[in-house]
Simulated assay, not measured.
Amino acid sequence: MLRKINFIPFVVLCILLGGCASSVMKQYIGKDIREVYMEHGKPTNTFVLADGRKVFQFNWGESSVGSPYGMKGGCLLNYITEEDATGESWVVVDIKYPDRLIC
């Protein structure tokens, strides 16, 4: 019985952390990707899709075991962007993140 009681808070914590990445990412939709840089540093990777949109990938929650963003190893978060009308910046139009319990 004691093991079940200790397991319940762990499950609740996992569920709460699972929604954190998407909540953080959604706030950047419609904004310049440089705002993500200011908050999370440089991306791990960037590449251009066949339709011309550019993807910026960031590692999230990887810094340490005690990170509030997830478990060590983190998640690869993808911000999909389109070039703005001036051609001077990339605006976040979509997000993709791993479909798993903790991210």
Rank of each mutant, 00 (worst) to 15 (best):
S23R: 14
R34N: 09
T46D: 13
L13I: 05
G73H: 05
I102S: 11
Y79W: 14
E88M: 00
V93T: 14
Y79Q: 07
F56H: 13
V91E: 03
L2C: 04
A50V: 05
M25T: 04
S63Q: 05
K26Y: 07
L49Y: 08
L49T: 05
Q27F: 13
R100K: 15
E35A: 10
V48S: 12
A85M: 06
F58P: 01
L49E: 10
G18Q: 06
T46M: 14
G41W: 08
F47C: 06
W60A: 03
Y79N: 07
M1T: 13
V92C: 08
V11D: 09
L17P: 00
F10E: 15
S67R: 02
D99E: 11
F56M: 05
I80V: 15
G66T: 09
P68I: 10
R100Q: 12
T44P: 00
A50R: 10
Y28W: 14
K31M: 14
A85L: 08
E39I: 02
I8L: 15
A50Y: 10
P43R: 15
K72H: 01
L2D: 11
G74C: 01
D51S: 02
G74E: 01
A85D: 10
Y28E: 11
V12K: 15
V55I: 12
G66P: 00
Y79L: 08
L13H: 03
Q27E: 13
M25C: 08
K54W: 09
I29Y: 14
F56C: 06
I29M: 11
D94C: 02
C20E: 07
C103P: 02
P68F: 06
C20N: 10
G52D: 03
Y97N: 03
F58Q: 08
G66L: 10
V36Q: 09
D84I: 08
S63K: 08
T81C: 13
S63P: 00
E88D: 00
N45T: 11
D99M: 12
A85I: 09
E82A: 09
L101Y: 07
E82T: 05
V65P: 01
P98V: 05
L101P: 02
I95G: 04
Y69L: 12
Q57R: 14
L76E: 01
R3N: 08
V93H: 02
Q57P: 01
W60L: 04
Q27H: 14
C75N: 03
S22D: 04
V11M: 15
V92Q: 09
I80D: 05
E39H: 04
S67E: 00
G30R: 14
L77V: 07
N6T: 12
M38V: 01
V12W: 13
V92R: 11
M1Q: 13
G52V: 03
K26N: 10
I102K: 12
Y28L: 11
L13Y: 06
Q57A: 14
E39D: 10
D99Y: 13
A21N: 04
F7L: 15
P98C: 03
E39W: 02
T86F: 09
L101V: 11
D99Q: 12
V36A: 10
Y97F: 06
V48Y: 12
K4P: 03
T86K: 13
V93R: 08
L101Q: 09
A50M: 05
G52S: 06
G19D: 05
F10M: 15
L77Y: 08
M71F: 13
V91Y: 04
I95E: 03
T86R: 10
L17D: 01
L16R: 07
Q27N: 13
F47M: 07
V48W: 04
